[in-house]
Design a protein around this nucleic acid. Sequence first.
RNA 1: GUCCCCAUAGCUCAACGGAUAGAACGCAGCCCUGCGAAGGCUGAGAUCGAGGUUCGAUUCCUCGUGGGGACACCA
Length: 530
Amino acid sequence: MGIRSNITAIVAKTVPKGMVFDVRVAEEHQEAHYATTVAFQLAKAEKKNPREIAARIADDIKAKAPKDFFGKVEVAGPGFINFFVSNEIFGKELKQILAEKKKYGTLKLLKKKVQLEFISANPTGPLTLANGRGGFLGDALGNVLERAGAKVEREYYVNDTGNQVLTLGKSMLASEGIIPDSEEYYKGDYVKEWADKYRTLIEKMKEKPLALGECAAKDFLGFIKTAVQKRAKIKFDRFTSEKKIHETGLVKKVLALFKKKGFSFEEEGAVWLKTTAFGDDKDRVIITKEGNPTYFLADAAHYLQTKQRGFDTKINILGPDHYGYVARIQAVAKILGFKESTVLVTQAIRLMEQGTLVKMSKRKGKLIPFEELVDEAGADVARFFFLMIAPETHMDFDLALAKERSQKNPVYYVQYAYVRAKNILTKMEITNAPKNFDITKLSTAHDINLIRELARFPEIIEDAARDYGVHRLTRYASNLAKTFHNFYEAERVAGEERTIKDARSALVAATCIVFENLFSTIGITAPKKM
RNA sequence: GUCCCCAUAGCUCAACGGAUAGAACGCAGCCCUGCGAAGGCUGAGAUCGAGGUUCGAUUCCUCGUGGGGACACCA
């Protein structure tokens, strides 16, 4: 399954058992297809010259590799071992793409059941760009993990009760002038709009600000669902209500569990969880001295629910403002016995407008909602743009520029490559790629480079599934597009002599398959025309 | 004050401790009477500063400098 893993398996036979080493795709200018630095590692342990060791291993590899697997294995530079895969192997991979179609690039790497929680923004207003970043990341990561073999549930945890919602209710009352305004209230246009629309309802519920807030939150959640699922095409399997977590008694259950395990204690009239035992910098209150469970305790109950529903692996994507929350929730995950609990913290998106920074704040109401970006730039563009960048990068985003340059966005470059490929097949009226073609007819550098690049798809999935680096996909998309554009400029399909034409159309058909699989994993459309 | 993230080309971003630091945009040239030029080719252009670890540092460590964020019995 995949050329790289085959090479890894071969190399493994020539080094000490259990040794961890890398086989990487060699960069373009190095000419080789794959390379390993295993000799450097061994040189350190054996205190020998890496070149010597590399030579020894290279010979061993040649002896142990299947016949005709490598075109060449050589030692280069200070001790790299370079691999040149034979055209037969590339040809086999090409046939595999054509045989597997949609399944090409699905792996049996991960057997686990994963709950992926993301966005989970309070339904107290529109989503911010940071929410959107986490949304695209979560959606695409879910796709990657599924391709890698995991069973994934995508969850949005809805804070539909508590203080923030109470504040929302009060904000509505203040907006209608029923109670005096306050610094802490939400002030965006959306507050006023909603308040104006439901004036009579607000008047009726003026004694019950929490219920009012819940009412508004329900509406806002509806807007969020539309923005996320319909417009941004971010999928969720489950919306979990915090209110229901309280109602089903899970909060009491998790509290009892903490007590039983000896991680909770009372002090100053409140109940605390000993999160410092797991590296947090202070212990956290779970029951206030008024006797109310904190948000944190409810979230712990939510984790318990997830665990009880059969998930041992939880991945939670948080925005930058929740960084301080990581240590305590990880403490909970440990106490509850999750096998894996990963928290990915995305960094903020700084929104620039004509060179100056625009502060984003829900409370102050000055913000560019995520949905506006999606509508104006387009779902594909917004998604691709956000996913091109590593989550920990502090991204500067100029909305005006993004709209203006949308035609030059890399997503068009990538989609255009697909359109060109598709167009070749359409023009030649090929619906099914020829099955019996002669792979030796694919012999030019452009032919081989394209197959090479196609064969990387499963490797990219594997890498991204391991380190959750979803931006590998968009980077790969650009590389594949570039390779195809190069091929397209240099080689022809239609009009070539029969055997070449068949082989090339098979190659182009395979390119379309990989593009389609890649696009669906990233979550963008595969246009037939542009 | 404490903690976390970031600093790479004019701009926005890449690069498991490895070979000549990549790409798109912008800039200067060139390429359509052959599958769509939303494309291809060529060129100029960068690792914040000072130490350290290493055969080898953009990457790891320390100290600076400059940005962003977090430090509630809010969520």
